[in-house]
């Protein structure tokens, strides 16, 4: 209905104001609250307009998510905040990937543009998830923070990239759910390979990059579901996140390409 769409527009404006607020010290905290208020409105509007089946299990899943999210965010020590943000970002990417997979399974053959959006969402969402979990591991000292270069990396990276692209193209052509699941697994491997060679000191910049990735995958899922709000929110984060990644790299006197691939050519920080 029109009033729901209007409500989503209000939410989109809240998100823009949130980003704008967060960019200035005086208004940052208010900006964040405006964003949160927008998100609550979006969820309420969705429940009203969709009238979903399985209402109780869905509400239960949300409640568990709220409980875990609030406790984790409240208890985390200051120094561990970046890795918690990485983890939150990763699960967002995973959620977007799952949404696209399920949409494909429920709607079935929806035409090439929809298949393309699905492949993109699954691919980028899974890369973001795996990459974010690995950055969490690096910052939490579960994985060595130094750049890790796999043996014969040219073959491994080339092979993984080709296989993933092949799977993505097949998903676009066939719209097969099984192939989309295969694509998700390959993308997980790709996400791990992307973050392995990054040195510990550069990890925050990679988290920002993966944050932009999740944004783009959310945007693609918005196209897939025909939901303009998801498209706007995802694109906003994708664009702001990309710029922020560059600004963060500049502030450290580094280049994003050096951060990502420097480890492979031996010029990364030793974290």
């Amino acid at each position: 209905p029109t009033w729901i769409q209007f409500g989503y527009l209000v939410v989109a404006v809240c998100f823009i104001l949130a980003l704008k607020g967060l960019a200035s010290p005086r208004t940052a905290r208010t900006g964040n609250l405006v964003g949160a208020a927008g998100a609550v409105l979006a969820v309420v509007l969705t429940f009203v307009s969709v009238g979903p089946d399985h209402l109780l299990p869905i509400l239960a899943a949300i409640l568990v998510g709220v409980a875990v999210g609030v406790v984790a965010a409240r208890r985390v020590v200051m120094t561990a905040m970046p890795q918690l943000v990485a983890l939150f970002n990763g699960v967002g990417g995973a959620a977007a990937g799952l949404v696209a997979l399920l949409e494909l399974g429920e709607v079935g053959d929806a035409g090439v543009p929809a298949h393309l959006a699905t492949a993109f969402t699954v691919l980028v969402g899974a890369v973001s998830f795996a990459g974010s979990v690995l950055t969490f591991g690096k910052l939490q000292d579960l994985v060595p923070a130094r750049p890790i270069v796999v043996p014969r990396f040219r073959w491994v990276y080339g092979g993984a990239l080709l296989l993933t692209l092949a799977a993505a193209i097949l998903v676009v052509i066939t719209g097969s759910v099984t192939l989309a699941a295969v694509l998700a697994v390959l993308a997980l491997v790709l996400g791990v390979l992307l973050v392995l060679p990054v040195g510990g000191a550069d990890v925050p910049i990679v988290i920002s990059l993966l944050n932009a990735f999740t944004g783009l995958s959310v945007a693609a899922s918005g196209y897939l579901l025909g939901n303009a709000l998801l498209l706007v929110a995802g694109t906003l984060v994708g664009a702001a996140g990309s710029l922020l990644t560059r600004l963060m790299a500049q502030a450290m006197g580094r280049r994003v390409t050096t951060i990502l691939f420097g480890g492979l050519s031996g010029t990364s920080t030793q974290g």
Partner: peptide, 9 residues
């Protein structure tokens, strides 16, 4: 904050 916003998925 941007990370939170894409949670609207």
């Amino acid at each position: 904050g941007a990370n939170a916003i894409h949670g609207v998925i």
